[in-house]
């Protein structure tokens, strides 16, 4: 642990009745880092985030944000953070600008700075031309962009993004990635949850993979790949032959896993996969360096999709 840790969590737990939603989670987020929380639906990511700003009280364990305890110093913490919640929770009947102005007041932006700050942020996210439209007339992507800048009104040091890009088209997703990178370049700390492994790979320096309330792996994307799925992956989709291919791969010491979408064979070197192909006279539908998705599938034993 270093002095410039923004978040420190040690053995944090939270249960709802019988359900252990967060079950002994420890991590720390350093200043300027983009830290990713990954995990299937119900893993406890949002619960952990709610504990960071004190809306959910932790059951036990140590948790500090900027060295402050969220269970009794929530307001001091909330002054310094911006949160993109999983639901948009916009005021549908109000306009874009009204939504922002209301949150500028909530975020204690001084009265005379509210209007210019709102304009600046709306233009930053290319929403200036929509400012007098009611929320109900915006597309999903525009709403998400608005919620994103709503979280920046108080110029936060820590930005928490709970599934910022779920359900968005690739163009909006790339736009938001660009903004996150820009925030990082400005020295902001980012905590992000996502179901898109590619997003985590593009944005995050450090990752924590959770499942059913527990940490199952942690490290940088490179570390996780090197540790859990080194090398390359070939995907096969030829149902009658998959069982035989799997057996053959395993007998040659290659890692193989099968799910409803096909058979995945991993090897440390690309040549081994090419040799496997020619020996079996089959063609992979895809052959590529392994990525975080492979790590995730390997660790959680399940497929991760944004809209699961």
């Amino acid at each position: 642990m270093s002095r410039n840790d923004v978040i420190r969590a040690t053995d944090v737990r939270k249960s709802f009745g019988q359900l252990q939603a967060v079950n002994g989670v420890s991590f720390h987020v350093r200043e300027g880092q983009c830290f990713g929380l990954l995990g299937p639906n119900g893993a406890g990511k949002s619960t952990l985030i709610n504990m960071i700003y004190g809306t959910t009280l932790r059951g036990s364990g140590e948790l500090t944000v900027f060295g402050l305890d969220p269970s009794h110093e929530a307001r001091s913490i909330k002054r310094r953070i911006g949160v993109v919640t999983q639901d948009n929770a916009l005021d549908e009947s109000l306009t874009v600008r009204e939504n922002m102005e209301i949150y500028a007041a909530f975020a204690s932006v001084p009265r005379d700075q509210r209007a210019p700050r709102v304009q600046e942020l709306l233009h930053y996210m290319n929403l200036g031309h929509k400012q007098n439209e009611p929320i109900a007339s915006l597309s999903g992507g525009m709403k998400r962009r608005l919620v994103f800048v709503r979280a920046l009104l108080n110029n936060p040091e820590l930005i928490i993004l709970d599934e910022p890009t779920t359900g968005l088209d690739p163009a909006v997703r790339h736009l938001l990635w660009g903004k996150v990178k820009q925030l990082k370049a400005e020295g902001k700390t980012v905590l992000l949850t996502t179901h898109y492994m590619h997003e985590a790979e593009v944005l995050c320096d450090q990752l924590l993979i959770m499942s059913a309330g527990q940490v199952i792996a942690g490290g940088s994307p490179e570390q996780l790949r090197a540790e859990h799925t080194p090398g390359y992956v070939a995907a096969f989709d030829d149902p009658p032959r998959l069982a035989a291919l799997k057996a053959h791969a395993e007998s040659h010491g290659l890692q193989a896993s099968q799910d409803s979408s096909g058979l995945y064979i991993r090897a440390p070197h690309l040549e081994m996969l090419l040799r496997f192909q020619s020996e079996n006279n089959c063609a992979a539908i895809q052959m590529r360096p392994s990525n975080l998705e492979d790590v995730f599938l390997q660790l959680t034993g399940q497929e991760l999709t944004a809209d699961a």
């Binding site: 809306t55 929770a89 549908e92």
Partner: peptide
């Protein structure tokens, strides 16, 4: 339904 308070509670509002 509108979840207004969830979002408010992320600001200094308690």
């Amino acid at each position: 339904f509108e979840n207004i308070f969830r979002a408010m509670l992320t600001t200094p509002i308690g």
